[in-house]
Design a protein around this nucleic acid. Structure first.
Lengths: 125, 125
DNA sequence: TCAAGTACGGCTAAATTTAGCCATATCAGA
DNA sequence: TCTGATATGGCTAAATTTAGCCGTACTTGA
């Protein structure tokens, strides 16, 4: 079966020589980290995810959830009942991401004091 | 001293609750991983970096080198001689990134077989 | 003096991602 | 029957990042 994927069809080639590029391709997307982490914490339903991440529009959360599903990081279960009920959960592959995320998060926390000022006020040093 | 930073001045706020967001902010940029890794391997001069990463334009490499410098990941040394000579090297902060990069790269390599097809041929399953 | 090397900046267009609006359908409860 | 909750899609504009062109200045060597 052939179908149009929701991933933007890139006109410029992607480089994947190094494994970190693969990681970055998976994680890049403004809300993917938050989504993965919320699902890891047990927040499974799209409505509740949206309430937990209120700054993101419903639209972009859907888009990125779909991308993560396509990549095999999360699974989507549609309960065939009315009203519709949907749940997301991490796949086995998604679970392997958790310790890696923790490693990078620890790095970020450790150096937060140095890094944060540049992002909060990038125009002035 | 106040100066205009080369970072794009964002009109939408950035979220940094979690340390992983800090890591992602530092690493995001198409060529930053390659730049950090090359510098880690001892390739120090801008011209040689460009020859090692020929697919990137000189312009964008300069831009991302400057961003990494601003963030304190690399240091730039200008030798006051003519013709000009410039060298980059990792700062202490940049060095702390190496084991983290290795962790994420290992994750990517381990799952390359599953992930790669989605990026190489995203339009068809 | 011309080409080629060093390094750097301005500027604009293209590519890519994100935001935000409007609309669908079904169900439960007031 | 009106409101609000469930979940989802089409579409376009805005925001952001990357690519690519042209130009600067200095040096060395042919």
């Amino acid at each position: 079966m052939t179908y149009i994927c929701i991933m933007y069809e890139k006109k410029l080639p992607v480089d994947l020589q190094c494994g970190l590029h693969l990681f970055m391709e998976v994680m890049s997307g403004k809300w993917k980290i938050a989504l993965i982490w919320c699902i890891h914490l047990g927040i499974k339903r799209p409505g509740e995810l949206h309430r937990r991440i209120p700054k993101a529009s419903r639209r972009i959360l859907d888009t990125q959830l779909k991308q993560l599903t396509t990549l095999g990081i999360i699974d989507k279960t549609v309960f065939e009942q009315l009203p519709l009920k949907v749940e997301y959960e991490l796949t086995a592959l998604g679970e392997t991401l958790i310790p890696v995320i923790e490693t990078t998060a620890q790095w970020g926390e450790k150096h937060r004091a140095i890094l944060e000022p540049f992002f909060l006020n990038p125009a002035v040093k």
